[in-house]
Computed example of a mutant assay.
Amino acid sequence: MDFGIAHHLVGEIAVVQVSGWIEIGSAPQMRDTLIGVIDEGHVHVVIDLSEVVFLDSTGLGVIIGLLHRLRTHNGSLALAGATDRVYKVFRTTQLTKVLTITETVADAIAAVNSGAAGAQAP
């Protein structure tokens, strides 16, 4: 499956839809898109992972880098819709303790709106 990334706004929240493989070849495009979202002034971000079939350590690095960047802007980050395979990567690396991961985009938006999404230091 080819990598794809797009974003749209839901109120003040940038919802970034990612599909395909997030790995060493696609991570730079993902990073550049996410940095662009922040540079546009959107510091509350939800990443929809429902169509991601693979995530490697390079992709994890992009997500953690985004979290750190958002923290410096008093922003927030929530992830949504990770498949079992992708969620296992977060669980194995214990990033489930640091990141807000929800089943649906609607739940992730609610977490961001309530201030429960992970941008504040744990």
Score class of each variant (00 low, 15 high):
residue 31 R to K: 15
residue 99 L to N: 10
residue 30 M to A: 14
residue 21 W to C: 10
residue 25 G to K: 13
residue 44 H to M: 07
residue 94 Q to D: 12
residue 97 K to W: 07
residue 73 H to F: 07
residue 92 T to M: 13
residue 72 T to F: 05
residue 95 L to Y: 03
residue 101 I to F: 03
residue 22 I to L: 10
residue 56 D to L: 02
residue 54 F to Y: 15
residue 77 L to R: 01
residue 32 D to M: 10
residue 29 Q to F: 08
residue 101 I to G: 01
residue 37 V to P: 07
residue 110 A to Q: 12
residue 101 I to L: 10
residue 76 S to E: 13
residue 62 V to H: 04
residue 108 A to K: 00
residue 60 L to M: 15
residue 116 A to S: 14
residue 77 L to Y: 02
residue 105 V to E: 02
residue 71 R to D: 09
residue 54 F to A: 01
residue 74 N to S: 11
residue 92 T to S: 13
residue 122 P to E: 10
residue 100 T to H: 07
residue 60 L to N: 05
residue 57 S to R: 06
residue 6 A to R: 07
residue 55 L to I: 01
residue 19 S to P: 11
residue 10 V to A: 06
residue 119 A to Y: 11
residue 119 A to L: 12
residue 75 G to K: 02
residue 95 L to G: 04
residue 25 G to E: 09
residue 82 A to K: 00
residue 79 L to I: 02
residue 28 P to A: 11
residue 120 Q to V: 14
residue 12 E to C: 06
residue 108 A to V: 01
residue 87 Y to C: 00
residue 56 D to V: 03
residue 58 T to I: 07
residue 101 I to Q: 01
residue 65 G to S: 08
residue 111 A to D: 12
residue 78 A to C: 02
residue 10 V to W: 00
residue 71 R to E: 09
residue 34 L to C: 08
residue 69 R to Y: 08
residue 20 G to K: 02
residue 62 V to K: 03
residue 93 T to H: 04
residue 39 D to F: 06
residue 45 V to C: 06
residue 112 V to S: 01
residue 107 D to E: 15
residue 23 E to Y: 11
residue 117 A to Y: 06
residue 9 L to W: 15
residue 104 T to P: 07
residue 15 V to H: 01
residue 100 T to W: 03
residue 89 V to Y: 02
residue 78 A to S: 06
residue 19 S to R: 10
residue 29 Q to C: 08
residue 12 E to H: 14
residue 25 G to R: 13
residue 31 R to D: 10
residue 43 V to W: 12
residue 44 H to W: 14
residue 35 I to R: 09
residue 41 G to M: 12
residue 22 I to E: 10
residue 12 E to Y: 10
residue 39 D to K: 12
residue 93 T to V: 09
residue 49 L to I: 04
residue 6 A to L: 05
residue 112 V to M: 02
residue 110 A to R: 13
residue 58 T to W: 09
residue 29 Q to P: 10
residue 25 G to S: 14
residue 82 A to T: 03
residue 44 H to L: 08
residue 80 A to H: 00
residue 13 I to K: 06
residue 33 T to Q: 15
residue 58 T to N: 13
residue 43 V to S: 13
residue 80 A to S: 08
residue 14 A to K: 02
residue 9 L to D: 11
residue 67 L to V: 05
residue 99 L to I: 08
residue 122 P to T: 08
residue 64 I to P: 02
residue 30 M to I: 07
residue 110 A to N: 09
